[in-house]
């Protein structure tokens, strides 16, 4: 008989489900994920049951999926801050930086001032204002144009401004402006490099800069394992087992300590009871001895004849006492 299965090809159908699909461009909405150790901490909290490995896998794909979005937003806290985008608030009535030094404007009427104010500024001029404002907060002096702090502030303003732009574009179209997000990614890496160099050269200035610009900088760690799902899950499992072992040992130790204390108390009590019994028995034995006449019971206490013995001592000292010889003459 001809085997019909030879003519039915199922391999192409099987191909579709070979690799698990996960979205590498997941949108992150939870600001807690900005913590670089968030997923490792979550992995530590997973219950150790039969679904543990599956839960780890799920967590890993979530981690990988949100990496891109976090890379774009985490350092500037942009997941939490959806309205201002970390950009400084600039007064609407302020004259634009370009026209600040014009003497004519100081005496001009309000309507003219308004034309040259930030309120009427184009987007380009507004972004310049943001940049100037951030740069002013960290630069070394007013003529400083090439220090790392100034560069970092400029790049930060650029990143936040462009992120705001991406958000604005996202309101109108569903398509992601990759031409812009890619550039943000490049600028973020540029800033990361500048931050690294500044931290190497001048740590105090680095601390001041990231505090002023509200950048969260994490020292990049060398990965301890290969970046695959299996290796990550294995590393998490290993850590978990180690922690679990420590925890259980600690518990056992505490239990042991408690048991030792309990045992001590119990033996003390037992010893006391036995001693009491022994005393009782000794008393009974003595009474038997008394009844048999081998021993007798003492009643009362022996008092020596104090007065008579004292009188005797006094008489003796009167009769026989000689004072010790002294070296001095009387």
């Amino acid at each position: 008989m001809i085997n019909l299965r030879r003519f039915v090809h199922t391999s192409c159908r099987l191909e579709r489900g070979r690799t698990a699909f996960y979205n590498v461009h997941q949108k992150v909405t939870d600001p807690a994920k900005q913590d670089p150790d968030y997923f490792e901490k979550k992995a530590r909290e997973l219950p150790l049951d039969q679904n543990y490995i599956d839960a780890l896998t799920k967590l890993y794909y979530e981690k990988i999926g949100s990496e891109r979005d976090l890379g774009l937003k985490a350092a500037d806290n942009l997941i939490l801050e959806k309205t201002e985008f970390g950009l400084p608030r600039i007064e609407k009535s302020k004259t634009r930086a370009k026209y600040e030094d014009l003497d004519v404007l100081s005496n001009a009427p309000e309507s003219v001032k308004k034309i040259f104010s930030v309120e009427m500024a184009t987007r380009k001029e507004l972004s310049q204002e943001w940049k100037q404002s951030l740069i002013k907060s960290v630069r070394q002096h007013s003529l400083d144009e090439n220090s790392l702090e100034m560069k970092i502030a400029w790049l930060t303003a650029l990143i936040r401004h462009w992120s705001l732009l991406v958000n604005d574009i996202g309101q109108e179209t569903k398509k992601k402006p990759t031409w812009l997000t890619h550039r943000i990614w490049l600028v973020i890496n540029e800033r990361r490099k500048a931050l690294r160099i500044l931290r190497e050269r001048n740590e105090t200035a680095f601390e001041k800069t990231i505090a002023a610009l509200k950048i969260s900088y994490h020292v990049p760690k060398q990965p301890a394992h290969v970046k695959t799902r299996k290796a990550w899950a294995e590393a998490q499992l290993k850590l978990r087992v180690e922690n679990e072992k420590e925890k259980r040992l600690e518990e056992l130790h505490e239990k042991y300590d408690k048991e030792v204390e309990e045992h001590k108390r119990e033996t003390q009590e037992k010893r006391k009871a036995l001693n009491n019994e022994l005393d009782k028995l000794a008393q009974e034995m003595r009474q038997i001895d008394v009844i048999e006449g081998k021993s007798f019971e003492t009643v009362g206490k022996y008092e020596p004849a104090l007065i008579s013995s004292l009188t005797e001592t006094v008489i003796h000292s009167n009769l026989f006492y000689h004072p010790p010889p002294t070296m001095t003459e009387k």
Binding site: Q140, H141, R199, E200, R201, T204, A205
Partner: peptide, 28 residues
């Protein structure tokens, strides 16, 4: 994060001495 020139013992930030930067700040 605290680079010091071993010859002069002065602090250096990005190939300029720290005291020179301070002087520049004051002058500006």
């Amino acid at each position: 994060g605290n680079i010091v020139d071993p010859v002069t013992g002065r602090k250096i930030f990005n190939d300029t001495f720290a005291d020179e930067i301070d002087l520049k700040k004051v002058l500006v």
